[in-house]
Design a protein around this nucleic acid. Structure first.
Lengths: 218, 218
DNA sequence: AACTCAAAATACTAATTTAGTTTCCATAGA
DNA sequence: TCTATGGAAACTAAATTAGTATTTTGAGTT
């Protein structure tokens, strides 16, 4: 079934500015690929579940891999849009951070293990594309976020921003799966609120912080 | 890959009372089958992800279908145990109901669309087995629950119990998926609390209920 | 009514994958 | 040293899948 990946950089078939069928296919494929894996979702499945024929799928995408390409670009475009929207809202820094983390969490949790596994198996090209898109998005948005945090006095200057970004992303990763959140009795919103709080204020109890301050001044 | 189903009623290979490897396989397969579908999880995948060889898988299960059989029986046994535990706890009826619904919701939400689709495609025998197990569990536990509710005065006598059970199960079904719950800002626990409240007290505002009572007495 | 077009449904085929089996190898324990 | 177990890898028959071709259907137009 799977051929070694050669993702083409040419666009899919002619795309009228808004081809609703094409969009539906990309969305439907997106949900299913990310949840159940690329391999696990056949073109027959997709056609049936979208209520159309395979012929229609192939009228807009030359190959399954080309569909995957569109799915990935769509996903990252949406993630970027969501994050840009958050930055554009001009809220205070802690709330902006919380929403950004919630956004990352939401997008990340949509991508489940079989998809990741399949991308690894599909070949280096595909995996590298995913990684490249991911890094670009993080750089663009977290970079701007850190700048704002610094200007607003929330982010300390003695620690390099990339390290703080890594800590934030690792914290999101740690609680990202639904079972974990269920276990913690958290909604995603609450989870990202907690991470924001801990990272900004630290995990030390405020009273204990005052005590520590006394000790270090002694 | 898939042969038409002929689930055997004979047990899998000799099962020492507690074969931890066998249990691991069943649990690992369970998670993956229910989430990503029977077809989408190959025996190669399973072996690799469990950190063992295919040879070991086949030392305990003759066929993939036999593994499925064990997965299903294990799943329903656990569901039954969970529900028996709730009934045995002898809490008040609303809390027992809430917990039962939460239990149903938890078990149901583990079973995702590709699994259901694959069971349909696998053949009538398998699908019927799933349905039979499901019905037996519901009858056993909700039946007892309704009896308790009636004795405690919570469940009206003018509506047949099976209808109330259907309403409850439908309500759980309606909010069972993670996206829906995220949207509603609910944890599973809270969701089942809400269903319990609505079903027991009705969806009408208490003040409005008093008003309605006046009107019907007029 | 006839015609056209788009898309569903179905059938088809080459390539690929998968379930299940076999063989080889390494390791631990007696 | 021998034995048993289980991982890794290779193998094979059967099944599946991606992609293509053909037929059918239904809606719209003339």
């Amino acid at each position: 079934m799977q051929r070694k990946a050669t993702l083409r950089t040419t666009p899919a078939k002619d795309q009228p500015l808004a081809d609703p069928v094409r969009s539906r296919i990309v969305e439907g494929a997106s949900q299913r690929f990310f949840t159940h894996g690329f391999r696990g979702v056949t073109m027959d499945d997709l056609a049936e579940e979208l209520g159309m024929s395979k012929r229609t799928l192939y009228s807009r995408f030359d190959t399954k891999l080309q569909l995957l390409d569109s799915v990935l670009e769509n996903k990252f475009r949406r993630a970027r849009e969501d994050m840009s929207g958050i930055l554009a809202a001009r809220q205070d820094f802690p709330e902006t951070l919380r929403q950004t983390l919630a956004c990352v969490q939401r997008h990340t949790s949509e991508i489940q293990p079989p998809f990741t596994r399949d991308m690894r198996q599909e070949g280096p090209e595909v995996f590298q594309k995913v990684e490249r898109l991911r890094r670009a998005a993080i750089q663009e948005h977290f970079g701007e976020l850190m700048l704002r945090g610094r200007r607003a006095g929330f982010i300390r200057k003695d620690v390099p921003a990339p390290i703080i970004i890594e800590i934030l992303l690792a914290a999101v990763q740690a609680i990202v799966n639904p079972a974990r959140m269920d276990e913690l009795g958290l909604t995603p919103k609450a989870g990202c609120g907690v991470i924001t709080k801990i990272v900004l204020e630290g995990a030390i109890d405020p009273a204990a912080r005052a005590h520590l301050k006394c000790l270090s001044e002694k």
